[in-house]
Amino acid sequence: MSTPVLEVNNLKTYFFLGENVIPAVDSVGFSVNYGETLGIVGESGSGKSVTALSIMRLIPNPPGKIVGGQILFEGEDLLQKTEEEMRKIRGNKISMIFQEPMTSLNPVYTVGSQIAEAIILHQGLSKKDALKKSEQLLEMCKVSLPKKRLNQYPHELSGGMRQRVMIAMALACDPLLLIADEPTTALDVTVQAQILELMKDLQRKTGTAVLFITHDLGVINEIADKVVVMYCGRVVECGKKEDILKSPEHPYTKGLLNSIPVIDGPKKPLRPIRGVVPSPNEISHGCRFRSRCDYVMDKCEKEPPLMNIGDRLVRCWLVHNFEK
């Protein structure tokens, strides 16, 4: 196998709030190959977004700080880069789209100038050429009347349209990696489907690797090749999409799958995971999921390591037992 475009090893991003240290991302690792889509799933507070922002090195500091690990992008550790070097990567080789299209665009600048900005910065094009390229990008993202849109302001566009603009902006410099942080969460389902379709289509054309963050396993099913399941800042399961969705090993992944309503097929009661995500200062030791786990046992007082099962990784003592 070739080297992955992105390899995250043992990443630790902590937030320092007064006396409290919150391990938002704790020893997280995964890799994304060129042209591949990796989905990161988890409930709110599982550390998905913090992982994404860590890769961009955009963790607000204070209070957040990356305290350990490696983020290898094309074999080079982003954590060793200076701020100056990072700026040349952001928006150029790695770009990002965010959850809230309504607030992620600057209200006082036109759509055109906001897309052209990154092109002018990273590719040194003139303003005129950059705007021409912006128009092409909008067209590629299936925005109607792209020429007119260039001179419009974000408030004149719908949510779906704004997210298309965000995607156009992110793809402006042909990045190797696109980080999409819940890009469809704030949209209507129909628009959601359109945006997913667009992203799949664009990925086929451009060959950009995508790190897709979502809490929606349905979306993962649509778009991902590989899946990382996160819980409380930890990777609990990681593997091929088909394996994980069809035969989840970790009780948390099972719980997530049972929480999805099914439209066709026999009607069965939803089985949501009981309880809520524990707040970070409640986690002291042991398996972080044990307070909500149906299979909890004495051994769970000690935290299980990530264990290799076939070609997937699972962090659960149950698997360990099966292994023996």
Partner: peptide
Amino acid sequence: RQDYIRTARSKGLSEKLVINRHALKN
């Protein structure tokens, strides 16, 4: 702390541009 400031940073703009162009006008 608005989202569009984070977007501006994610484009690779320098802190000076983020402040003077994107934040100040708002």
